[in-house]
Write a protein that binds this DNA or RNA. Structure first.
Length: 834
RNA sequence: GGCUUAGUAGUGUAGUGGUUAUCACACCAGAUUCUGAUUCUGGUAACCCAGGUUCGAAUCCUGGCUAGGCCUCCA
């Protein structure tokens, strides 16, 4: 703070005085002095060209300041090139900041001697246009583009400024000409009118793997971060033939890869990565690999390989090809030899402490280690010794000889190979050394001709070493681009933290439905299409974000609203006896499974003298805003022919709890139209009604706060799981469950058959492959409990009828155990609880 | 401490120097409704701060502030 004020003090800063000497005023001189890099360049330029005695006017002086700023951001501008531009400013050829900026860009790729004609053409030197000529072109533009009114003023100005022929016309002249033309054509500009809204496009039903927002808007792959990615072949190479070979192999397609490390189950953040990689490739007619990143056998387990493929397929994607980083171990080793031979790698025996110290330990500049300059032959011999198992872990490692002068720590001689004392799940004991992530990832991307290497923002710094290594080996160089991770408020994504929750008993396992792992969401019953819809509407940027859970829930509800059949269900049953019906009264009611989708079919349910309603739908005291049952109040029953009126109720003498309502069916006199309808299930043993649910699991948030602290154990919500024991569902449950299960099996078989046809075969018999069983689980039985919530069958359920091939009417059987998971609640109007 | 990425309604996100700053969720209001759900309609709400360049800045430049990432466990 104090140094800032002293810096701005003209009397004390010779730099500001020097800048003032060329004609800058006090404020602009101070501004130019602020940026150290640009200020140094300006100082040097002034002194070398004696600008202080050149009698510049203020505009020219400002051009020199702009020149210095542009050079400070450019790469590798030489003194001769700088002098060339200085001369052009002095002789009056470069007159605007815009011209100066373009000039600096020009000399970045054109060295002295510079072709004056080419330079002048590129930088607008000598360009002139009269007002009349400009007006003619503007009018021509208006006519040929069918411009209709003043609301297009901004876009017309922009289009004309962007046209090549008018690139160097004065922007103010363009603005004036456009306004003159508009005035002549449309009359005087009027006050802005309210913009008429475009009618909203009819929304299409979502489908898995191709969920799209409204057609009137751009796809997430066409705007923002993904919209700005390069076209295939647009990533520059160290040699042109590398680009040509890449395009020849891919045919100019987008090729991406989803490269998880198989060290844990995937979580919802991975769904964004899957969507981005698979979706971007699919949107652009390309291909996506599934690549298991298995360079560290100490952390990887076989069980995760299968699960990862299952989750990718469950979300609706099919890998074009499945590969492993370990597929390339031989090739990676040979390239390491080549890197050593090129004197771009060396074997180092420093301890980790020594390496840390050499790297400055977060404080200073790195310094080379004592092995950095050893002869190539020594490094080659030692690397063979590493490979032959003559070193224990940490005794030797292969380091890349990068650039210790660079400001990026990723360039400070990263490790390429290290010794690990672990058997690899695929290569067994063949290797004693294993390549690191920084060595392997870019090279395997290159081998697999990846056009877009999409990863998350923690790898921003790694981009430089990624590109360095491809260039050092003169290989095809994919372009790495980094986008922001998906994080959900109130959830944790760290595999280490989730493992702690599992091992310490806070949750029942990685697939506990309170978690946001993909297997947990699946078990809970979340449809995969809903997840894809969720991530596709989020947008992709590089920002750090935290998504509200309400947004995820909305996507799930939206998906289920049109797809989930409705079943009558009560969570906390309250017995109702309709006293004006005979004891043996029975009416069979056929009702639709969906109020708006008749194709989902119908179910038949009994209606009898004794039914159950939800306890929440009755209260003792009526009120103006309350529309359901109370003594003396009438309420409708869904699909039943008449409403009921509560006449009296019974309570438990010992607890005072209401145990039964006595009601009257309003089937006499003029029909009553009740304000509300409630759901019910009837007691009718001959038809198996009601279906009693053994457990209904309702999940609440796992953590109390939106951003669980590092000590997340203290933030655990002890009431995150609620188990309800007495819920009841209508008998339509049985045929519906059977039908949904059969459909899931059928769809899984069809999709898998198709996938096996169109995917490249995997070489290894042990590689996980597509099976129909991966796509079918008990959670495929989903429904909405009418007026309650969306539910799915839990994997703990035992329902013999689902596995029974016999074409018999399904019903409860001996040994059945029904467990439902609440997928998501319905939204509740605030008036409902008043 | 060094390097680096970012900052647009409460939450996300779109946005070529020229727009009345887009869309979605959330929120409010109305209509419809055999789900106080859904659907439809309308509304409230934003360019981190300061300075500069420019006829004109959310956009370009400089500085500051805030948040994140990396700086030899991995990936």
């Amino acid at each position: 703070m104090s140094s800032k004020t002293s810096k701005l003090d003209a009397s004390g800063d010779p730099l500001i005085a020097l800048f003032k000497s060329i004609g800058l005023n006090q404020a602009k001189a101070a501004e130019a002095a602020k940026s150290p890099k640009a200020a140094a360049i300006l100082k040097d330029t002034i002194e070398k060209h004696s600008l202080a005695t050149a009698s510049l006017d203020e505009k020219q002086a400002s051009l020199f300041a702009a020149l210095a700023s542009a050079i400070s951001k450019a790469s590798d501008v030489g003194e001769q090139e700088t002098s060339y531009i200085v001369a052009r400013i002095l002789d009056g050829k470069l007159k605007s900041v815009d011209q100066v900026s373009v000039a600096v860009k020009y000399i970045e790729s054109h060295r002295v001697p510079i072709d004056d004609v080419g330079f002048d053409a590129q930088c607008g030197v000598g360009f002139t246009i009269t007002s009349e000529e400009l007006l003619v072109q503007v009018n021509e533009h208006i006519t040929s583009n069918a411009i209709a009114g003043w609301d297009k003023l901004g876009s017309v100005i922009t289009s004309i400024r962007n046209s090549p022929s008018l690139r160097w016309a004065n922007p103010l002249d363009i603005k004036n000409a456009v306004e003159t033309a508009f005035n002549d054509t449309f009359g005087p500009k009027q006050a802005g009118k309210p913009k008429t809204k475009e009618p909203k496009a009819v929304k299409k039903e979502s489908s898995a793997a191709s969920a799209q927002p409204s057609t009137s808007r751009k796809s997430v792959f066409e705007e923002g971060f993904l919209g700005q990615l390069h076209r295939p072949g647009g990533n520059p190479q160290i040699h042109p033939h590398l680009r040509e070979a890449h395009l020849a192999t891919t045919g100019g397609q987008v090729w991406t890869r989803f490269p998880p490390e198989p060290n844990g189950y995937l979580h919802i953040g991975h769904s964004k990565a899957i969507f981005v990689n698979f979706g971007y490739a699919a949107h652009n007619g390309g291909k996506c690999y599934l690549r298991y990143d298995d360079t560290n056998p100490e952390k990887e387990e076989a069980r995760y390989f299968e699960s990862i493929l299952e989750m990718v397929r469950w979300l609706g994607f099919e890998p074009w090809k499945i590969t492993y980083s370990s597929d390339y171990f031989d090739k990676l080793y040979e390239l390491a030899i080549e890197l050593i031979k090129r004197d771009k790698a060396y074997v180092c025996h420093c301890t980790q402490e020594q390496i840390k110290a050499d790297r400055g330990e977060k404080r200073g500049q790195p310094r080379p280690c004592i092995h950095r300059d050893r002869p190539v032959s020594e490094s080659l011999a030692e690397f063979v010794n590493m490979k032959d198992g003559k070193y224990r872990p940490k005794e030797a490692n292969l380091r890349m000889k990068q650039d210790l002068e660079d400001g990026n720590p990723q360039m400070w001689d990263l490790t390429a190979y290290r010794v690990l004392d672990a058997s690899h799940h695929r290569t067994g004991d063949k290797w004693k050394i294993y390549p690191t992530y920084d060595y392997t990832h870019c090279l395997v991307d290159s081998f697999e001709n990846i056009s877009h290497s999409l990863c998350t923002t923690e790898f921003v710094s790694s981009r430089q070493s990624y590109e360095w290594l491809c260039d050092a080996l003169e290989l095809y160089k994919p372009r790495q681009s980094e986008y922001g991770r998906l994080s959900l408020e109130g959830a944790i994504m760290s595999k280490r933290k989730i493992l702690a929750l599992v091992e310490e008993g806070y949750v029942d396992g990685w697939d506990d439905p309170r978690l946001y792992t993909l297997i947990a969401l699946r078990r809970r019953g979340v449809p995969p299409g809903a997840i894809i819809s969720f991530v596709s509407t989020l947008g992709v940027s590089t920002a750090v974000t935290s998504i509200e859970v309400a947004r995820f829930e909305h996507a799930v509800r939206q998906y289920l609203e049109s797809t989930a059949p409705r079943l009558l269900m009560v969570m906390r049953p309250l017995k109702v006896t309709i006293e004006n019906l005979p004891e043996d009264y029975l009416l069979t009611i056929e009702k639709p499974l969906h109020p708006k989708v008749p194709e989902l079919g119908t179910t038949s349910v009994p209606f009898t003298r004794t039914i159950y309603i939800d306890a929440d739908d009755f209260r003792l005291e009526d009120s103006k805003d309350y529309f359901r049952l109370a003594p003396g109040k009438t309420v409708g029953l869904f699909q039943a022919p008449y409403p009921i009126t509560c006449t009296s109720y019974k309570t438990d003498p010992s607890t005072g709890e209401i145990v039964e309502l006595l009601c009257k069916l309003e089937n006499e006199g003029p029909p009553k139209k009740p304000k509300a309808f409630i759901q019910w299930v009837a007691e009718h043993p001959p038809s198996g009604s009601p279906v009693r649910i053994d457990e209904t699991r309702v999940f609440h948030r796992l953590f109390k706060s939106d951003n669980p602290p590092a000590d997340f154990r203290s933030d655990i919500n002890p009431d995150s799981l609620e188990v309800i024991k007495g819920a009841m569902v209508e008998v339509g449950f049985w045929p519906l469950s059977k039908q949904l299960m059969n459909e899931a099996r059928h769809d899984g078989k069809a999709r898998t058959a198709k996938a096996l046809e169109s995917s490249a075969p995997a070489a290894d018999d042990e590689t996980p492959h597509a099976t129909s069983e991966q796509l079918v689980g008990k959670e495929c039985v989903r429904f909405q409990g009418l007026r309650v919530a969306y539910f799915a069958l839990d994997k703990d359920s035992r329902i013999a009828a689902l596995d029974n091939d016999v074409d018999v009417e399904p019903s409860r059987e001996q040994g059945d155990y029904l467990v439902l998971n609440r997928i998501v609640s319905l939204k509740e109007d605030s008036g409902k609880t008043a």
